[in-house]
Write a protein that binds this DNA or RNA. Structure first.
Length: 1125
RNA sequence: GCCCAGAUGGCGGAAUUGGUAGACGCGCUAGACUCAAAAUCUGGUUCUCGCAAGGGAGUGCAGGUUCGAUUCCUGUUCUGGGCACCA
């Protein structure tokens, strides 16, 4: 009986389907194991051999765990929302749901071929309303939650935040949001719905804000960074610019610390943990405020520091409240004074010393006060006088008006102020004001202001190098630039900023050419008053830190290069550690040229500087994260609708009973107006004020692993007792491309659902393994483009295309000079032409390297490197009359390893291989290719070897001529040794997912049993169980032939017994100076002295020792012997 | 540019903890069976010098640690993945 894999596989696949062999029950009494593959996107291109690699690995692991007695959940489904379907819809008018469904059906058919043990009754699709109902539901939970830093977890806003506001105002969130003004409980209650909504929005875990996107007007869409190339769209080459759009975000930054902490509790590779850690990018450093001056400003000395430091906090809060409760007259005056209308910047509600001035012209030392009538009362008069006197001592002059004057005689009032200002300007000597703080901004840091009231706040992780700062670099998109640029530099700065606008973030960072532009402004080193030029350059991104860096060229490579490029001076604070040629990022130098920290070690200096900065109120310690909040909306159609209505500018969540909010029918998938998504075109949608953005691709995939546990539940996304049972995913397998996107987001969702009490665990994946990519091995042919100069009106289409074999092309190219074919090579080539194809001999061919084009050819019509020329002619119509110049009678192609992709014609379809060799062979071969984690190019050739192995296994049971040859005899020691060696090896290998070496182990076992002529059931049957995860069909077939009545899928994995492997001797390798010279056999319990004596007497060893003394004798029991001479 | 990974025969890869480099398979090659081919079986196959016995070199490259390094350390080159709207 022959190994008829087609029949066998068909039979068992049918049987297993009929018996529901892969159906998984939520049977809480059994130990569970959860094996998961990363969610596939059902692409239209279908499956190629790279896709199943991970699925086969997990399939083997799942089947193995089942044999080990676990209740194994191994589900599959589809991440079915996505851009390709939408793009296809735009181009072909086909509803994405329809094309997606077709793709899924195709996908499924291909998967079924390979014999996976997925429980298909648990399949999920993110684009099904029954699924995205729960995606929307979870979104609402995020929307309704905030992160409470005192309990360190997410809580419902209605449970803890609003009650706190109602009870004690904004106390609970003090300092959390820079731009939020404190309020009292009463104020909270008096706020309008919009005001309350705006405040709450700043705390929601799913929130709305404005973000900058790559906008392509011509395409009417937002583009990803990699879709932007040199400032134009990859598709179509249209211009791209930055655009500010309202977007939804997830407040992942609140979870930065917990996402880091969680990494310590999971079994991910170090590389993966490192990548996530770097992505989160926690750094400890300082924010430092530098005064700025621009030389063309009127004065360089600036009146600042106007408040008494101790009062600053109190004054600030009062000032804020005052500004919120502006009187009519104050507002009128503000409108007339603001924006330099009188030629000078004015501040309102500004603290000066211990007071709050209504309006203050700091440069002119003029304060304007507006009083009600009660100021005329005696008590108030005394108070006012005292204030006037007090401020006078600090050089301020006060002018007063009543509300009445301002309201009814505004012009007069303005005139008076102007006069007073002029007078102040005439006053020559002004005492220098002292104290801290302007109030416009949230932080005391921002209060150090230079001319024009500007300050440069930088974030640095190295405050210790502050005396080495030679220049500042700020991100080109900072609005600050416009305020500080000098007149002389304005044109250059504007030009540079415009250039950067067209560049994607990626391009900006990857750019090797250093570019930048001086703004004309300077920052002042707060410690030594050094003037530091402020530059702008594309390598500094606005999104990180404050968008500004202090450049220390002696200690930072990038800063050093920048300084060299623009010929900026470099201050050496590192002493000998800086060689003047290369920056040295050391943290262990003794500082030099560093004022009060000179001679201090850097680590010590960091502390000194930090406390000094804090003491002076110009800097503070700060923990910074590189990670930004996750953008959670897309201006697209094919995604989950966001269950939010906008009523009078307030986001109102839909009632949970209204879910799912289904996608509407649309006429066109084209984008809406003003950069909005297609949903903005749907009248019925906008009439209901529904959100027109949809969710991004990672929404559905952030929680899908939970849905598999309880896929048909319409009361909850997953019942708590079910998720308690299945718990974490025990093994999660997928590519590293998801390292920071999907994995962080799903970890975030899990943590939030855990905080809110819907889950009992806060890390979704216990063990994560990254699979490598299967790359394509592309094949190329060379086409010669002929140019006939002798016949002017030559019809080229009549000419057959001419293809040259690789060797001949190389021959030509070896004589290549500067990219041109040399005349010698050309003559040679012509002579080849003449001998090979006489009919071309009259043609003259232009000697240009352009004449030869390298074209992709379908790998499926190439055998190794040899092209099947007949198949090639049939491949595409334009090649029907192709002519070939061969070498040794063959057309040899050239090859390159690339990504496997249809456009490169290097995809190999698993269906064809399964059809030719069977699913069992295909599965084993994919594994045999190499370690799961490693990327490797696909090569079909080796599949024969694996197929031969299965046939050889089959022949242990059946002989071609004799039929069944298996026996019931008792196994010998040698046979048992082989069996148990294999049990151990295969079990260990599967556990550590070394699936390729397990295949080798099977081969070794079958080779050994063949050599031993072993046909014994007692040996082969356990071997079949071992093989079941890899080749379930053939294993089941032989299992049944041996007379078993139950399925091998539920057999018990054989137990390894040490006793069969016991050895009493070891054949030791003996080395001289680490070089292996011979082997000598010793008993395992032989003692060192005996071994040393024997070794030194050994003929071969003695020869090497001749005339030498033995310096050392190394004996590692059970391993090796080394003689050192 | 930044972060992560990888590099071993003609090819895919093995060597699990620093201890015989190249298991297993492909390919190639010689042979058996056959009229022949396929299939199957047996032997050989890192390179190099040598008739052989045997020697030398060798895990991207340059160094280092060690009795001993594919394995650890430093530097470097190349390839692949990611860099926030591809999934």
């Amino acid at each position: 009986m022959e190994y008829n894999f087609r029949e066998i596989e068909k039979k068992w696949q049918k049987t297993w389907e009929e018996t529901n062999a892969y159906k998984v029950q939520n049977d809480f009494s059994k130990p569970k194991y959860y094996v998961l593959d990363m969610f596939p996107y059902p692409s239209g291109a279908g499956l190629h051999v790279g896709h199943p690699l991970g699925y086969i690995s997990t399939d083997i692991f799942a089947r193995y765990k089942r044999l080990k007695g676990y209740n194994v959940l191994h589900p599959m489904g589809y991440d079915a929302f996505g851009l390709p379907a939408e793009q296809y819809a735009i181009e072909h008018g086909v509803h994405p749901a329809i094309s997606t469904e077709q793709n899924i059906n195709n996908f499924r058919k291909q998967l079924d071929n390979i014999g996976f043990c997925f429980d298909w009754s648990r399949e999920v699709r993110t684009s099904e309303p029954s699924y995205y109902k729960w995606t929307q539901w979870i979104f609402l939970q995020l929307f309704k939650s905030w992160y409470n830093i005192s309990t360190n977890k997410a809580e419902y806003i209605a449970d803890t935040l609003i009650p706190a506001f109602e009870k004690e105002g904004s106390k609970i969130i003090d300092g959390r949001r820079a731009d939020l003004q404190p309020f009292t409980a009463e104020e909270w209650k008096s706020f309008s719905a919009k005001e309350q909504g705006d405040i709450l929005m700043q705390f929601r875990l799913a929130f709305c804000d404005y973000g900058i996107v790559n906008w392509c007007e011509a395409l009417g869409t937002v583009l990803a960074n990699d879709e932007v190339i040199n400032g134009v769209s990859e598709r179509g080459g249209y211009p791209v610019e930055k655009k500010k759009l309202r977007q939804w975000y997830l407040r992942i930054t609140e979870y930065a610390d917990r996402l880091l902490e969680g990494l310590q509790r999971v079994d991910f590779s170090d590389a993966m943990k490192e990548m996530q850690t770097n992505w989160i990018g926690r750094s400890q450093g300082a924010e430092i405020a530098f005064e700025i001056f621009t030389p063309n400003s009127e004065t360089r000395k600036t009146p600042i520091n106007t408040a008494i430091p101790e009062y600053y906090q109190i004054l600030k809060e009062h000032a804020r409240e005052n500004r919120k409760n502006q009187t009519v007259s104050e507002d009128i005056l503000w409108q007339r004074l603001r924006n330099n209308q009188l030629g000078e910047k004015v501040r309102r509600q500004h603290p000066i010393q211990g007071y709050i001035a209504d309006f203050a012209f700091l440069n002119s030392y003029l304060v304007v006060e507006i009083d009600g009538d009660y100021h005329n009362e005696k008590e108030q008069k005394i108070y006012d006088d005292a204030r006037t006197k007090y401020l006078g001592e600090f050089g301020y002059k006060i002018v007063r008006f009543t509300h009445n004057e301002v309201e009814n005689n505004t012009n007069e009032v303005i005139k008076t102020i102007k006069t007073a200002l002029d007078e102040q300007h005439k006053t020559s000597s002004q005492p220098s004001p002292q104290g801290e703080g302007a109030i416009d901004s949230e932080s005391p840091l921002s209060s150090r202001r230079g001319v024009g009231g500007e300050v440069l706040t930088v974030y640095t992780t190295r405050p210790d190098t502050i005396f080495g700062v030679d220049f500042m670099v700020i991100a080109p998109e900072l609005e600050l630039i416009d305020k500080i640029k000098s007149e002389a530099q304005t044109e250059a700065v504007d030009e540079y900023v415009a250039y950067v606008k067209s560049r994607s973030e990626r391009e900006r960072q990857a750019e090797k050419k250093i570019s930048g532009c001086f703004t004309g402004a300077y920052a002042i080193n707060p410690f030594n008053g050094k003037e530091i030029p402020i530059w702008t350059a594309e390598y500094v991104l606005a999104g990180y830190g404050t968008g500004a860096v202090m450049a220390v060229p002696c200690g930072d490579e990038r800063d050093y290069k920048f300084a060299k490029q623009f010929d900026l001076p470099i201050t050496n604070i590192l002493g000998e550690k800086f060689d003047g040629e290369n920056a040295n990022a050391t943290k262990d130098a003794i500082l030099e040229n560093s004022d009060f920290v000179t001679v201090k070690p850097m680590k010590e200096a960091t502390e000194v500087i930090l406390s000094e900065l804090e003491k002076r109120g110009i800097g503070k310690r700060k923990v910074n994260f590189r990670m930004r909040d996750a953008a959670f909306s897309r201006q697209r159609f094919w995604g989950e609708p966001i269950p939010i209505k906008w009523i009078d500018g307030v986001a109102i969540p839909l009632n949970e009973k209204e879910l799912p909010l289904q996608l509407p029918e649309v006429d066109s998938y084209k984008p809406g107006p003003e950069g909005q998504g297609p949903l903005a075109n749907v009248k019925d949608w906008t009439d209901q004020h529904l959100e027109t953005n949809t969710m991004p691709g990672y929404a559905g995939s952030s929680w899908y692993f939970l849905r598999y546990m309880d896929p048909h539940n319409d009361q909850a996304f997953c019942e708590r007792n079910v998720s308690d049972y299945w718990n974490q995913v025990d093994l999660y397998l997928g590519g590293t491309e998801h390292a920071v996107g999907h994995l962080l987001y799903s970890r975030l969702w899990t943590k939030i659902l855990f905080d809110l009490g819907y889950l009992g665990f806060d890390e979704p994946y216990k063990r994560l393994v990254n699979q490598g990519m299967i790359q394509g091995s592309s094949r190329f042919v060379y086409r010669l483009t002929l140019k006939i100069t002798s016949i002017p009106e030559f019809d080229y289409s009549t000419l057959p295309q001419l293809f040259i074999s690789r060797g001949i092309v190389e021959q030509i190219e070896n004589n290549d000079i500067n990219g041109m074919i040399s005349s010698e090579a050309f003559a040679e080539f012509n002579s080849i032409l003449q001998t090979e194809r006489k009919k071309y001999s009259t043609f003259f061919i232009e000697p240009s390297s352009q004449a030869i084009a390298k074209l992709h050819v379908d790998v499926n019509i190439v055998d190794g490197y040899e092209l099947d020329t007949e198949a090639f002619k049939k491949w595409k119509p334009e090649f029907a009359n192709a002519e070939f110049i061969l070498e040794n009678g063959k057309y040899i192609t050239t090859s390159e390893v690339e990504k496997m992709s249809k456009s490169k014609f290097n995809t190999v379809n698993p269906d064809e291989l399964v059809n030719k060799y069977g699913a069992d062979t295909f599965r084993m071969y994919e594994m045999f290719l190499g370690p799961v984690e490693q990327s490797k190019p696909w090569e079909t050739k080796g599949i024969e070897g694996v197929h031969r192995f299965l046939k050889k296994l089959w022949r242990l049971v059946f002989d071609e001529n004799k039929g069944a040859i298996w026996t019931e005899e008792n196994p010998t020691d040698a046979e048992l040794k082989t069996l148990h060696k294999t049990i151990k090896k295969v079990g260990d290998d599967i556990e550590r997912l070394s699936l390729n070496t397990a295949v080798s182990a099977f081969m070794v076992a079958v080779n050994e049993l063949s050599d031993l002529k072993c046909h014994k059931r007692a040996v082969i049957e356990p071997l079949l169980i071992l093989l079941t995860p890899y080749a379930p069909h053939v294993a089941e077939e032989l299992w049944q032939i041996f007379g078993n009545t139950t399925s091998i899928l539920d057999a018990a994995f054989p137990t390894f017994e040490e006793k069969y492997l016991k050895e009493s001797t070891k054949n030791y390798p003996v080395s001289i100076n680490g070089k292996m010279r011979t082997n000598i056999e010793f008993a395992l319990d032989a003692d060192k002295a005996f071994i040393e004596e024997t070794v030194l007497k050994n003929e071969i060893i003695a020869k090497w020792l001749e005339g030498q003394t033995v310096k050392k004798f190394i004996f590692v029991p059970g391993k090796m012997i080394n003689v050192v001479i």
